[in-house]
Design a protein around this nucleic acid. Sequence first.
DNA 1: GCCCGTTTGAAACGTACGATTCAAACGCGT
DNA 2: ACGCGTTTGAATCGTACGTTTCAAACGGGC
Lengths: 268, 268
Amino acid sequence: MSEIAPQSPITPSVAPEADPRSLATRQRLLETAGEHFGERGFAGATIREICKQADANIAAVHYHFGDKAGLYAATLAHAREQSGPRVMGATPGEMTWQQLSALPPAVRLREFLLAMLRRVLDKGKPHWHTQLWLHEMVNPTRELDNVVDSSIRPQWEGLRAIVRELTGLPDDDERVWLSTCSIVAQVLLYKHGSAVMARLYAGSPAQAFSPDRPLHEHELRLLAEHICSFSLGGLARLRADRQDAEPVTETTSTPTDPSTQQSKEHPC
Amino acid sequence: MSEIAPQSPITPSVAPEADPRSLATRQRLLETAGEHFGERGFAGATIREICKQADANIAAVHYHFGDKAGLYAATLAHAREQSGPRVMGATPGEMTWQQLSALPPAVRLREFLLAMLRRVLDKGKPHWHTQLWLHEMVNPTRELDNVVDSSIRPQWEGLRAIVRELTGLPDDDERVWLSTCSIVAQVLLYKHGSAVMARLYAGSPAQAFSPDRPLHEHELRLLAEHICSFSLGGLARLRADRQDAEPVTETTSTPTDPSTQQSKEHPC
DNA sequence: GCCCGTTTGAAACGTACGATTCAAACGCGT
DNA sequence: ACGCGTTTGAATCGTACGTTTCAAACGGGC
């Protein structure tokens, strides 16, 4: 009586074709799972909680998705396809990729950063797709490869193209990679280090940017502005010293003096 | 028979004064716990594993530290005191804070970054103190306040002082905070996003900097060099536009495209 | 040498969670 | 209306943990 394989197809994988509340349940599970996984990550979320909030039974998860990992994979796929067309957070109020590509790269960088900041810092439902791979970033699961290829890399390439334009460096220059990295890092810290930054910022002049509570639109813009400006400066310097592995030079030597030196040795 | 308080003092907190193997066990537990917590974080580590590797009994943990949280707190305190004197990873081969303070700020920035990179990227025992609060950063526990105040903030202030010197901005300028943030972010991404970066970097010109395996000394230096250079550029730009909230300006105008148009409609 | 607080060892308990089972309910084709 | 594959509900199992218990072992002070 204790056969291994029960009787169910375990993972239909494709929608089981026109069922009254089956699809509804499946859908509800995906939505709810998205929220939970987005908030707490794969390990942190429990299928019990998800099922309770989705008004579904635990058995439904196993029927539709096989197991927790299957639900997670399906949730990622679901999030992927329903936010597929948008690029870099082109939520309703924002620009499309088409519009952006007409603008100068420096402006595009700022828009990119603003959109990314919005999605990264916004807690809650609208952007749980982003929240999902932010968790995947810190606590990778077996789904990471998919997430990187289908969600992260496109945006990475978008930013890298901007960096390439801004620096004029060839595509295969490693500094383009490193700089792209430097830029996204500035955004991501506010997510991955929010608890620490909140405490460091507490009571400081930068208090308004403390990332523990939702940032207001105004602060979000200022933050994007700072990161954009800082990054443009970094990229400008990148163009300056073309020779590789050159140690720290005399740029910005004297500290508190207001002299106008900002870049002396720029050949271009 | 089921009294609440057993009979033990639960948390001696101070060393129980000259005991043959008691101190030894306590010490062994602290060391092993440090490694485990550093590798997997508080939630990821199990006291069973720790005890097994430390050749101690689970009851010993309860006796010496009360519970898992107590062991964790003690581990943090232990790590703190035994790496207290050093500042920003002044491991044997590196400079002391004293020596550094004599150098120009740009050089100090580079040394700071190199030391930080070393500690952040180095997996394994020597730097599990740093690894410990890197975990605390992403998955905060009740100990976070202590960690921030006693471990993170001193180094933050050190870096902030360098930024202040490099920009000449007053102490209470929020841009100093934001820029300090931008700098540490570049280092931390290689830790918190290592899995993703490894995949993005795979097969790219920046392949050598893929943070999934230990970086060689040479790559570590190049990485520090890049972050330093990029950051100096960002800081230099910060000095340039003194007026606040100024939108993207003409610096590093579009290279591959000759048009000089930039921000048009930005009231921000 | 004996008493008593301290420390250790081995086992058990309680809980949270994912996975499993199985029968009942449902819906569709005939 | 009937039978059969599909879906759901409720209960149960197995495992991994942290925690607790309690008696045995230890060691210094009388």
